[in-house]
């Protein structure tokens, strides 16, 4: 060895002894070592407590509500007049508004999202992808209140300048904008599903002279199908839970209608209207808040579980 500048020196500092010495005075750290897992467990259980909190809050207040308004009446009633002298609490107008706005959103986000996914996963070069993907992510990072503003002050006026019959508040405009908001989600989840299709499958098709388009539609999309479906389900769930866009742009009429040029209210928008309107605790209208929220919660929970089930099945395929 060129520069062996010395053997281990034996001298004043004896590490072994020092470590021995410190060990005896390390009881405190032993206690820490035992306490930490417990503390961390308590911290980790906060997320479980949150779930319990949500379910308990919604259930206990919703039960109060169903004592006043029979559950059957609530789920089959087509009239919602919480503030009238003879209030009626049918949730169907809200469910209707929620479904219609989500449908419109998915009509926008579904095709565009999946086409973007096909482009990004099958056609785009690596360079183009690296530019386009983060830009799409930006779309997902815009706060929903900004989309609400955009729907109300831009999209609605544009629609009305083309179709004057459309109301100033309507379900169409927020539906479309919600769709735009969901595009990145569907695009990126579907793209993940498509890119995880093994290349060997593509090569098999391309080698027989199939075009990229044929390969995409006959091989890639069928193979990635459940992943794509999962992205759609999550997209719907996101639309159902979306609040600010519809609250701002669709007004608060509780119409039970299929006319998308009219104002409709979604479940989420109802919760904003009622809770923001100082509904005094203990009144029927206050309790109705929780009944609607419970319905919404169950809706989205089922959707999320479904999406997870579908995508897990998908993962097992390869």
């Amino acid at each position: 060895m060129p520069t062996n500048s010395g053997k281990p020196k034996q001298n004043a500092v004896n590490v072994r002894e020092m470590i021995e010495e410190k060990r005896s005075s390390r009881n405190i750290s032993n206690i820490t070592e035992k306490l930490i897992p417990t503390i961390l467990f308590i911290i980790a259980s906060i997320s479980v407590l949150t779930t319990i909190g949500i379910i308990y809050t919604l259930l206990s207040e919703a039960i109060e509500f169903f004592k006043i308004v029979p559950i059957w009446e609530f789920f089959t009633g087509t009239v919602l007049k919480p503030l009238s002298q003879n209030p009626e609490f049918g949730v169907l107008p809200l469910i209707n508004g929620t479904i219609i706005s989500s449908l419109i959103a998915m009509l926008v986000a579904g095709p565009i999202g999946i086409m973007s996914a096909v482009y990004l996963s099958e056609y785009a070069s690596e360079r183009v992808r690296r530019v386009l993907k983060p830009l799409l992510e930006v779309l997902a990072g815009i706060p929903t209140i900004v989309y609400g503003f955009f729907a109300f002050t831009f999209v609605t006026p544009v629609i009305r300048s083309i179709f004057p019959a459309v109301d100033a508040t309507n379900i169409l405009s927020p539906g479309i904008v919600m769709g735009v908001m969901i595009i990145p989600m569907i695009a990126s989840l579907s793209e993940d599903a498509m890119t995880s299709v093994p290349n060997a499958m593509r090569e098999g098709s391309l080698a027989m002279g199939a075009t990229k388009l044929e390969t995409t539609f006959k091989v890639v999309i069928p193979a990635a199908f459940s992943g794509i479906i999962a992205s759609f389900v999550l997209g719907i769930s996101r639309a159902v839970g979306e609040t600010m866009i519809v609250t701002i742009a669709s007004g608060s009429s509780k119409n039970f209608t299929f006319d998308i040029t009219q104002s409709m209210q979604t479940m989420t928008a109802y919760i904003v209207e009622v809770s923001g309107g100082e509904a005094a605790a203990g009144t029927t209208i206050y309790y109705s808040l929780y009944a609607v929220a419970l319905t919404l919660f169950v809706f989205t929970l089922i959707m999320n579980l479904l999406a997870r089930y579908v995508s897990r099945k998908f993962r097992e395929e390869y």
Binding site: V15, M18, I19, K22, R23, S25, R26
Partner: peptide, 9 residues
Amino acid sequence: AYGPKIHGI
């Protein structure tokens, strides 16, 4: 220094 430090030096 990592080892000595965790052992209290």
